[in-house]
Amino acid sequence: MSHKTTGNHKSERYPRFDTGQRIEHALLILSFTILSITGLPQKYPDTGWGEGMIRLMGGIELTRFIHHTAAIVLIVGSIYHLVGVGYRLVVKRVQMSMLPGWKDVVDVVQSLGYNFGLIKEPPKMGRYTFGEKVEYWAVVWGTVIMILTGFVLWNPIATTRMLPGELIPAAKAAHGGEALLAVLSIVTWHMYNVHVKNFNKSMFSGWLNRHEMEEEHPLELAAIESSPAKTVDPEVLRRRQRLYLPVAVIFSLVMLVSVYFFVTFEETAITTVPRQTVEVFSPAQ
């Protein structure tokens, strides 16, 4: 928590994302953008823009190298996210407010109804609106698909040791399809909701003001104002931290070692096709 404002009714600032989460988001912006810029031209290399972008990035091999590097950043960021989620759930025991529920479905329908003037009041939503949950789970789903199919494409020979060969072109199809879906979702849903509709700066500043809370998270605001902040006994917190730390370290190490294997697992092809020297001059006898 970057701002000690919880429970202060007069304060305009309602904490939303801590520093770690904001760094994580910055890493995601960086890696996602680079992956999109280097990846989409690879999906459409026969178009003028695709070919031109690859040319600008120094050719297909360099484009692939940049793509792979950004992928490592994304994967490391994902590991960090898992550790962070674990800390919040296990140590801090926060509410699993990101889990989707029936209410989200109702919220979608009511939103539409309100927008078209069928309902007088817009639905009231909690800490995470249905739009934010869609984004979050889309990122989770997408990242899992991209990492798995990316592994297959990065290590096709290792994959086919155990799995059928058709998985390679299938992984390529899924990687490209999922990428297109992700990019289109970002430029529509994400862009509209946090940049066009209202410029939501909480991912950079860490907080929302009261007006924003009333507008977008009235239920969370009500909860904050109705009951005092739940504080954990410091002794209990320390005990949990002592338990979580080694687990988190081991998990992180295992994951990072896996990433290392991921990227160095195999050398798909020999670096260059060996030149066969053929004597072409063989006069007919």
């Binding site: 939103s111 927008n115 199809a173 979702s185």
Partner: peptide, 20 residues
Amino acid sequence: FYQILIPVVVGGFALLIGSD
């Protein structure tokens, strides 16, 4: 799958954004 999923998802977003 993606030929169906992408239009459906993006179309859904477009509907919500458009209504908003």
